[in-house]
Design a protein around this nucleic acid. Sequence first.
DNA 1: CGTCTAGTTTGACTGATGTCTATTCAGTGG
DNA 2: CCACTGAATAGACATCAGTCAAACTAGACG
Lengths: 123, 123
Amino acid sequence: MSKQPVRIASLGDLDDCRVPLVTEPLSASQADRLAPSFKALGDPVRLRLLSLIASHAGGEVCVCDLTDAFDLTAPTISHHLKVLKETGLVTAERRGTWVYYRIRPEALALLSTVLAVPQEAPA
Amino acid sequence: MSKQPVRIASLGDLDDCRVPLVTEPLSASQADRLAPSFKALGDPVRLRLLSLIASHAGGEVCVCDLTDAFDLTAPTISHHLKVLKETGLVTAERRGTWVYYRIRPEALALLSTVLAVPQEAPA
DNA sequence: CGTCTAGTTTGACTGATGTCTATTCAGTGG
DNA sequence: CCACTGAATAGACATCAGTCAAACTAGACG
């Protein structure tokens, strides 16, 4: 439906970062705000967590299901989820005993756009 | 499937990573090969370096020009360029006294694809 | 209230990372 | 051959990041 003006406090304003990095040089400020998101993706465990969350039917996953998918302790998974949450890539919601995570598609899409290579890219 | 000889993963084949992370869960192997690229993008200096290289007219930039754009020493810039090179995001070519860097558009495009959010993505 | 389960937080440890200075390598040109 | 410049490497150092065990918090349910 209509998009809510969701705003992640801990996630800096990335509104001015919607232009491919190939198109024009990133400012230092833009780079400072984008880097944490890419850094969050720079760990294999977090990449898989994000993918598991993003690709799951229903759009959300319980932490317990995520923990089972790795050979890591629950605190470690929790730590990685926190990193993803703090960079605005996912959101968390508690329902009863369980906590469910879902992705923030806009965040993912923005990063995808930054890396996109327009057709008429400089050769 | 015939097992291929083990490849150095710093720039390992990412041929089987062309599917959006949202579409299906990444395997551990895929995540292991993708993570270094995102990690390389996880530093503000490298993001700006990449953007400077990618957006430069002519498609290439001399290291001397890059060094001037930052308040960092030449070895530090060199180190960051090495990281970008080792992850396959850029290539380097020496011509005379100078070394020119250019991006590898395929590498960038692949990462963009991995992060892409197809329209019918789970909300 | 007591207890059980799901998740998170804390603290510690270890290994990786960003930066610098000093040194070395690669070409150019006297 | 030697000196000079652009760039990369080596080593050192401080900080950060991933992991775990232990302790803690949030609900559910007798």
